[in-house]
Computed example of a mutant assay.
Amino acid sequence: MPASDPAHIDARGMKCPWPALRVARAMRTADAVTIEADDPIAPGELEALARQQGWSLTSDRPHFFALTRPV
């Protein structure tokens, strides 16, 4: 996978904290991750994880999130 392509996680149907745990694991080796997560708690957990780690979090549509490391 080229360095510019973010890792993608399909966490639909998973209850928290699993989506956040999957992102944390993926970000060990990636600079960017996209995730689809439909648990209503996921946005808050992903936001807290991103804030704690210093990552940016964006969401351009429901249940789809992008996390990136700062450059």
Results as ranks from 00 to 15, higher is better:
Met1Tyr: 08
Met1Phe: 06
Pro2Ala: 07
Ser4Leu: 04
Asp5Met: 03
Pro6Arg: 04
Pro6Leu: 06
Ile9Phe: 13
Ile9Gln: 02
Asp10His: 02
Asp10Ile: 00
Lys15His: 15
Lys15Ser: 15
Pro17Lys: 08
Trp18Met: 14
Pro19Lys: 09
Pro19Gln: 13
Pro19Thr: 06
Pro19Cys: 11
Pro19Asn: 10
Ala20Lys: 15
Ala20Glu: 15
Leu21Ser: 12
Leu21Ala: 09
Leu21Arg: 14
Val23Thr: 07
Val23Ile: 08
Val23Leu: 08
Val23Ser: 01
Ala24Leu: 14
Ala24Met: 12
Arg25Tyr: 02
Ala26Thr: 01
Met27Pro: 13
Met27Trp: 03
Thr29His: 13
Ala32Tyr: 02
Val33Trp: 04
Thr34Ala: 10
Ile35Ala: 10
Ala37Asn: 11
Pro40Ala: 00
Ile41His: 11
Ala42Pro: 15
Pro43Ser: 06
Pro43Ala: 05
Pro43Gln: 07
Gly44Asp: 02
Glu45Ile: 00
Leu46Tyr: 09
Glu47Met: 09
Ala48Asn: 13
Leu49Glu: 12
Arg51Asp: 09
Gln52Gly: 15
Gln52Asp: 14
Gln52Trp: 01
Gln53Phe: 01
Gly54Ala: 08
Leu57Phe: 01
Leu57Gly: 06
Thr58Arg: 13
Asp60Gly: 05
His63Val: 04
Phe64Ile: 04
Phe64Cys: 14
Phe64Thr: 13
Phe64Arg: 10
Ala66Met: 01
Ala66His: 12
Leu67Glu: 06
Leu67Phe: 02
Leu67Thr: 06
Thr68Glu: 07
Arg69His: 02
Val71His: 15
Val71Tyr: 10
Val71Asn: 10
